[in-house]
Design a protein around this nucleic acid. Structure first.
Lengths: 242, 242
DNA sequence: CGGAATGTTGAGCTGCTTCAATCGTCGTGG
DNA sequence: CCACGACGATTGAAGCAGCTCAACATTCCG
């Protein structure tokens, strides 16, 4: 059963900027329905021209690009509140794929209506651009990490950032959260080999800083993790929700 | 002497999408003036909250992030037609710095008017979001290159992409273009050390594929370069101009 | 029970880094 | 006119972080 935008549980979180009643009402009309997919499903495919845009409501996924040589680069993790499909919506073609790692539920918007939004609800259009700029920021940050940090620093950064994002969503507590990825996924996100990622995770375990076992991540000492990553801590920025 | 948007030389290039007369007129009002800076000037500073947005008209620059450890990651090169300052315009703070490598001229827009644009000219707002999505695409691509390719592949990709972009702007011909950066800049863009970048450039020189000497880049064999980079070739996408 | 998927560990190799020295060019001041 | 310093490019040498290869452990499922 689809939730109405009025009752959207994400909206109330601190990290998402407030929406006016008029905006909520418009979003309700903009929303086409909900999509539920099983773990492992591909939601958007690189090169495809999908007629639909999504906001993740529940569950966790991945954005990734396939490389000519068979490799894969994970571009970002997809968490509740993330908007996906913008590239297809505007440029007509996705430049990366989006896959559900766990079972996911997504809000579905129709691409034709996107233009309506720009004409009739400029504040929502503004917010969408904001999200795109935020995504650009995330990617620039990831690029700096992958381009310049050591393996240990990258893993520490990756785990901390993920944990802080989950925490901001209310999906983590007392240093514990769910991390449903494979080690290969993290390796592909950080530009490391699987083996090296595995050994680096072991180091963090031995240092009593972060324990990742199966689906479950436990951050014993976020500040130590931040220090290893070479930063003060990771702060999740407030942002709009589409 | 500032050129009017009507006579903007960039607009006529194939790679930029057409603008309606009404749009051109609006842009003329949106435009506050032009900024000319010398080589080496910082146009936008990471962390700053600049009241101005820019479109590069002439000259070449860099976007980069400074790292806590003193390092630097070049996020992208800034070429004519590129829009900079979006993050400050929307999120209130730049997440990277922008620096002029050569003398540059930029169109200046006022940040307050940005919201006006969203209210009164949705087609321009739409185009701005498009540009943000395009930038996201570029960054994702760069991330894949830096995260997964070897040094030789990265350098080949970097030179080819730069060349194709210059070519699309009409700033390259017969395999020659201007490349006013230092080797350190390219190294920082590709996540390589200066020394290794230097040695890799030598390899490409010896293989008679690409010759970079001082300000001048000569691509003898674009297809060989593409092959080394592991791609078919690099195609510059059409895009809007703000 | 057997096979597939994921995680773990060891061993050896190499691409890339860091350190360090040299060279060429250019602008500047004596 | 030349000496000097600054800057960038170039090259050699040595070391290591991270890669690949390969074997084995564990869990889960048909």
């Amino acid at each position: 059963m689809a939730v109405s935008c009025r009752n959207c549980p994400l909206r109330r979180r601190d990290m998402f900027r407030n929406m006016s009643a008029a905006e909520v009402k418009f979003m309700q009309g903009f929303k086409r329905g909900e999509l539920s997919v099983d773990a492992g499903s591909t939601i958007l495919m690189e090169g495809s021209n999908s007629p639909q845009l999504f906001t993740a409501l529940e569950g966790i996924g991945l954005r990734y690009k396939n490389l000519p040589d068979g490799g894969r680069q994970v571009v970002n993790f997809v968490l509740p509140g993330d908007f996906v499909g913008l590239q297809a919506g505007l440029m007509g073609e996705m430049q990366h794929s989006v896959e559900a790692t766990t079972k996911m539920t997504l809000c579905v918007f129709s691409r034709e209506e996107l233009w309506t939004m720009y004409r009739s609800h400029p504040s929502r259009a503004y917010d969408l651009t904001w999200l795109a700029a935020l995504e650009e920021h995330f990617l620039g940050e990831t690029l700096s990490v992958v381009g310049r940090l050591t393996g240990l620093e990258r893993v520490a950064w990756g785990l901390l950032k993920y944990y802080r994002r989950m925490e901001a969503l209310g999906l983590a507590s007392e240093g514990r959260t769910r991390l449903p990825f494979k080690q290969q996924d993290l390796a592909d996100a950080l530009g490391l080999s699987l083996v090296h990622t595995n050994k680096t995770l072991k180091k963090l375990r031995e240092q009593q800083v972060a324990h990742w076992d199966g689906d479950s991540l436990r951050i014993s000492d976020p500040l130590a993790l931040a220090q290893i990553a070479g930063i003060a801590d990771y702060r999740v920025p407030d942002r709009p929700l589409i």
